[in-house]
Amino acid sequence: MKIVVTVKLVPDTNAEKRIDPGTKRLVRVPNETVLNPFDEYAIEAALQVRDARADGSTVTVVAMTPESGKEIVRKALAMGADDAVMLCDEAFAGSDVWGTAIALAAAIKKNGFDLVIAGSQSTDAGTGALPGALAEYLGVPGLTYLRKLAVEGTTIRGERETDTGFQTVRVEAPCLVSVTKSINEPRYPSLKGIMGAKKKTIAQWSASDLALSVGSGGAKTELTAQASPPVRGKGKLVEAADAVAGAQAIIDFLKEKKLL
């Protein structure tokens, strides 16, 4: 089975983020960039499916990212993925969900796939909309928000989180699934994994390799304005003498704000 994991590179939330006022794009300083935390769960899920099958199944990581993301993509290889494809092209810069989904779909089709595993959301400007759009462009069913995944032959079974509980869902490969952080505990790359990753292939494909023209010119949405939200300052601090006084301070405050 050919398993493909889509991974996004995102700014480390512990690092300060900045928007470039000229290009209006998020500034990504290389060493402040990490694998989208959700995608580590996706990689782990893929490795577990591959290893359980032990039939020569492979895991390929696909990321649309500038070339500077190479060392971070290598982390996915160090975890155990077999190879990686990076979609690097100035033409991809500024892609919206539409542009990203089209480019990823083209790359995944070129690579070949039976099962695509995505994270369910990304922690930067992500919308959680990519997996659905990608499934549509791949022309396969999309099973989202899985907290359990089992593959038997070509049958994919999953337990899907819902807003009120869960569903057990079944589908035949080829298909796309997205996973939540309840699905597993991602492994840390072992020393052997890190050494081995240096020898693994990271292919770089451009828009012309995929016969595509997407990116800022081809995006379906256009950033027209950007504003900073009002700064949230320090509010009132009350040292409660006892529980009644503490509760009363809150009641008074809620009344003042017309919330009670």
């Binding site: 969900v97 919308t127 909309a129 659905g132 928000y145």
Partner: peptide, 19 residues
Amino acid sequence: TMIGRDVASRVAARLDAGI
């Protein structure tokens, strides 16, 4: 919502629309 995002993202792709 979870369902809203799923429906909307597929509809957007089907219509080749921005989201």
